[in-house]
Amino acid sequence: MSQNKISTDKLNLYYGDNHILKDITIGIRAKAVTALIGPSGCGKSTFLKSLNRMNDLIDGVRIEGTVYLDGKDIYGPQVDVTRLRKRVGMVFQQPNPFPMSIYDNIAYGPKVHGVKSKERLDEIVEQSLRQAAVWEEVENQLRKPALGLSGGQKQRLCIARALAVEPEVLLMDEPTSALDPASTLKVEELINRLKRKYTIIIVTHNMQQAVRVSDDTAFFLLGEMVECGTTDRLFARPTDRRTKEYITGKFG
């Protein structure tokens, strides 16, 4: 358990009368990429969102069980949700830059968390954009509106925006499903580089992508986590029949 950055213990989530997540118990290794795979509507994204408490925003959601971040329960009474979300960043499916300049998009998070000095902000913006491998492309247009970028650039900008608050964990909810193949490749390369510094959890529909980018994989089906393990092992020798059927394309 000690090398696990995040772990959950019998996590259950209900939405109204629907039981969305059932007894999920999993450990996520630090500084590695964990892929969550499974057919749509099986609870992957919901699980991801319960790791930074984004589900709190939805009326009618009830959560039981525990989620540990570095051994501490993130649903505990003392937890400041804004601090938690600073530590556990998130990248969404649709690239959604704010309708402001590229610079302001990146500087938004640090400003929210109290960074005021101009030099420091400049530094963070450059560093984050470099980390997200989009600096060279936008270096000369930092003051231009972010909405003018291409889809792939927008998504890397959103990743840079998430990195700017210096998170420890990065949650990615199908980050490439809205992108073209070339942009997808760039984002995947980026993920491979980022895992040296960050713990990354990525939800993906695309099994090739899981194989390409992840160290560990967890397979979700109908709200349950069926199986998890190293990606190599899980795809080569699945232990559960359902996992095998899914990865060989019998359903999904």
């Binding site: 979300r85 600073k86 960043g89 704010f98 938004y108 998070g109 929210v112 968390h113 959103c158 608050v165």
Partner: peptide, 23 residues
């Protein structure tokens, strides 16, 4: 989604309204 992005960065709902939703 825009509001979600802001909240996911750790901004409070009120900050989100004034810094993201209104702009």
């Amino acid at each position: 989604e825009l509001k979600a992005c802001s909240l996911a960065l750790g901004a409070s709902p009120v900050t989100t309204v004034f810094r993201v939703t209104i702009p």
